[in-house]
Amino acid sequence: MPLLKDGNLVGEDAWLSVADDAPLPEDRPALISHARWQADKEQLVGRNAPVGIRLPNTVDVLDFGPEAGRFDLIVLEFPKFSDGRAYSQARLLRERFGFGGELRATGHVLQDQLWHMQRCGFDAFEIAREDATQAFAAAMRSFSHVYQPTGDGRVSALKQRLAATRKQEAAE
């Protein structure tokens, strides 16, 4: 399935998804399940190569969040596009726990949800489309303004208006 990172197609995913009972590769970034992380935590913290984690959308990020910094990749799941729990998980990871690694959306990822995902902090998307880059580019052109402040750095309408008023007042 095509993988987009920051809007560009990633030729080959550097991450190896490792089954719960398989050994971890020594020299390659390994993606593990949340269950494995909980079971083998002691062992995994000593590992040199990067570790990524796949977080089910039923995990309470307030519990997991303090450990987020140990990972270079967190994969969040959309079992159906209409199941929006991972939007909140993403914002909490980015904005509450300061997660700076790759935040990847997987599952039922559709063009018309990419704008929301990107606003919530996702920067990578597994999207089942041949024209994934065009779909992403189109989605990013959806809106020129935003009403809500999120961690994506866009300036909210409210802040834009206040800045405009202050500028005007300063000029007077």
């Binding site: 596009f81 209409s82 199941d83 929006g84 939007y87 909140s88 914002r91 949800q113 704008w115 929301h116 995902m117 606003r119 919530c120 809106f143 935003v146 009403y147 809500q148 999120t150 309408a157 409210l158």
Partner: peptide, 12 residues
């Protein structure tokens, strides 16, 4: 304004 196109709360 806050609720319009809220990125986190469009798939409740």
């Amino acid at each position: 304004q806050w609720s319009t196109f809220h990125p986190e709360f469009s798939f409740l």
